[in-house]
Design a binder for these strands. Structure first.
Lengths: 202, 202
DNA sequence: GGCGTACTTGACTGGTTGGTCAAGTTCTCG
DNA sequence: CGAGAACTTGACCAACCAGTCAAGTACGCC
């Protein structure tokens, strides 16, 4: 539900189960074609269970998306904790993102759909802005200390995210290549572009 | 209809009108939530008109997508015709793509949705592969003649498309910036990456 | 044991969906 | 003009949809 109901452990488990299963079904069959009946039937529970935990199908997806964004962000922040230079942090962020996306393919599908729907896109965008802001901070530092070429940190951050997401989607998710290799390619491209690849600065 | 019906000029006009209007409605309200009734009502025609020209709602979207892909490819090939070096051709392709996407926002929305649906994604992918192959050809030439750093042309092409599409989407389509400026930024990032920028974006 | 709250059931409702079709109209061309 | 093909109409259908609710069951806590 949208209000915060009191949940016992049993309730919290059910809720989680519903979100997990629904996310998978939404990713496989699409949000609109997957009915609430499909979800509860698949879990072999009554329809009332669904509406005990969520006020609507829409709210369910919103919560799934929010959870995913939170988890991805935590993974990134974990990965860059303790790294000293902006360049190291940017690279670690890229690598961890690609790994995370590989481990959460259903979420990737969901995001892509959600971006096309006016009811979900704004929520997604808010999360996206946080990611850009995080990244842009390190880009700005890199420009300031001379390790990166000058430019608009916001634009550059978006460019990095564009490369990362697209390569992860095409090579890891649809072609099944290893996140490690794809991350190498993404990092190289971001650092050196078409003309310049020399690995690792002084 | 899936078979090729004989159409008079009047018929071809209606067909086109249906595709145009449906594309707009799909982009605005989503494919699934937009019913066939919505489309024919909006055009103030009977339902039979729809099923005279298309065998199903699904087929309609497939044809809209195919038309878009064809048009984009033509625009790109037009733009690079007569350019002599691989680098010039790559840059011109990027710029023309961003312009085209700016002029066809509805199509961009449609693609994004279609990529999430198993019934449409394969058709989309086929078109996408053509675009990558086209681009990879020039990348390969650039590597051969020494104007580009070495690397897998396929991966590099996807990286370029990732930057281009993402920047176009976020800055041109959702923030309304000029295609020209965004194209400058995209080209700079692709050429120089984080370290090697030649020109400073707006 | 017993009481209240957390949870579950599934029939039901009012509405919508993609798609069909028999009937009618307009166009084209001999 | 007349006949056949191209096009249009809108009522109709079976299936399905998100969401409700009155009733019932399991659980935690005193």
């Amino acid at each position: 539900m949208s209000d915060n109901r009191k949940l016992t452990q049993r309730g919290r488990d059910r809720r989680h189960q519903l979100m997990e299963y629904a996310a998978r079904r939404f990713a496989e069959g699409g949000y609109h074609p997957t009915s609430v009946a499909d979800i509860v039937d698949g879990l072999q529970v009554g329809k009332g269970v669904f509406y005990w935990y969520f006020s609507s199908k829409e709210e369910l997806l919103l919560e799934i998306l929010a959870e995913g964004q939170l988890d991805l962000r935590r993974a990134q922040q974990d990965a860059i904790a303790g790294l000293n230079t902006p360049l190291e942090r940017i690279e670690a962020g890229i690598r961890r993102s690609i790994e995370w996306l590989a481990e959460h393919r259903t979420y990737v599908q969901l995001i892509q759909f959600a971006a096309t729907d006016d009811r979900f896109a704004p929520h997604l965008r808010r999360g996206g802005e946080v990611a850009v802001t995080d990244l842009a901070k390190h880009v700005k530092e890199g420009i300031a200390d001379g390790s990166l070429a000058d430019g608009d940190p916001n634009v550059i951050s978006h460019a990095i995210l564009g490369v990362t997401n697209h390569l992860a989607r095409t090579f890891v998710l649809t072609q099944g290549q290893s996140p490690k290799n794809v991350a190498d390619a993404a990092v190289d491209f971001c650092l050196g572009g078409l003309r310049g690849a020399v690995r690792t600065p002084a």
